[in-house]
Design a protein around this nucleic acid. Sequence first.
RNA 1: GGUCCCUUCGUCUAGUGGUUAGGACACAGGAUUUUCAUUCCUGCAACAUGGGUUCGAUUCCCAUAGGGACUACCA
Length: 485
Amino acid sequence: MSRNVRVRFAPSPTGYLHVGGARTALFNYCFAKKMGGTFILRIEDTDRNRFVEGALKEIYDSLKWLGLDWTEGPVVGGNLGPYVQSERLDLYKQQVNYLIENGCAYRCFCSSQRLDEMRKKQAQEKLQEGYDKQCRTLSKEEEKSQLDAGMPFVVRFKIPSGRNIVFNDVIRGNIEYKSDVLDDFVLLKSDGYPTYHLANVVDDHAMDISHVLRGDEWIASTPRHILLYEAFGWTSPQFAHMPVILDPSGGKLSKRKGAASVMDYKNRGILPDALFNFLALLGWNPGDDREKMSRDEIIGMFELNKISPKGAVFDEKKLDWMNGLYLTESSVETIAPDVCAALQEKGIVTKDISASDPYLLTVIRLLKDRSKKITDIVENAAYFFADPKAYEEKASKKHFKPETAKVLLGLVEKLDAMPAFSQQAIDAVYHEHASQTQIPIGELVHPTRLALCGISFGPGLFELMELLGKETVLRRLNSAVNILK
RNA sequence: GGUCCCUUCGUCUAGUGGUUAGGACACAGGAUUUUCAUUCCUGCAACAUGGGUUCGAUUCCCAUAGGGACUACCA
């Protein structure tokens, strides 16, 4: 029996959306699209202590920016909601009571102090760690008296003994656990909130999830989940555990070591399509040599069992390279709003310049194809809007020589006499001047560029000069001459 | 400590019981370009180790090592 593919991405609102989480979301998304299924977003906010204000918005914004639109979930709704776990508490209580009634779970009144001591002792005596099942054998009377006394309690799952639990991970094949290494884990916390394990299983069933694609830190919890499905009499979904994403030193990707969140990459000038493409290739490949692929191509080729089980290092240089590919094919108009906003933020242009300003668009056009990231454009745009404040030291030594003042003066004279200040005309003037004076063209071009831009690299000099305009060009050349004298 | 997962160039990866082990990023050199970038050549560089199985293993099996996850009233 084939069933509809329904997958979910289920983040906790405890902070920003990490690129690892984003990739899990992306694989869920691609799988759903490929199979004509449904991609669901569910918020797992059952830990009230770790809730971070603003995290939800950042998660939504990050997913939307990456183009991972969910078809059921918060904001958009759906038939099997609510999609936020804190709004489903009654359901979890109801289900946990069902388990208690059927002898699959029990109330535990142990204090955290007792639990701590128990663990300490277990560690000292090198015993198997885990709850010692003290409350599992509580009599009805004992339980009632505790309840009557208003003692707080949690509900624990009764792990059956001597069981062999085997599940088939789509990516890793069969994984086997003995139930005896599992302890009676908590289903419902004393504050009435469910733990991940309970809420996750109840919701995946209630939302008719067919495949659970999640991070591989959940592998060890999966046997518990299998047992829970069994206790409820439900069929388990298929499981596929995604490999981790590591930083270049082999550790966890973190903000401290650089970027970790989706928004970090957005702020670093990465394009969403490039991140999408790059993330898709981290742990997955289409089976051939293709690397730059559109979303539709990725979705079309996507297969769960082509995901590698191996953790992958996030190589920012390769991301930058790929971003360059996407930047090259982006139109000036598409990226102009982002560039404009960044220029305004850095104070390079004033707030009243619009993203459709013709001068700005030309600047972007000139810079775009020699940039890898939006930020590269922004960082190199300064001299289009203000005279250089300084000249790059290394380049000055090379291109500003004692005779340079005279050379520039000669050019100023010719340029000043030009009736029309076009790229072609300037080109002609320079070449003519070079042949007349026997000065190599390079010795004309480099000092000019340095005088105009303050740096030694950039777009073609003559189109740059045309854009800057005669007045600006002459002013900057003259001020360089004054400094050189 | 216990349980589980993982192991091909520095990095992302392809791949097969017999291959010169392929591609990409990075790096190095060169060509082109007024600079930078692009582009185009060329080069560098890998099957963790030890046992099996086999005529033959990078490929299959086992062990070891290394890395990682879990071992919470966190997810």
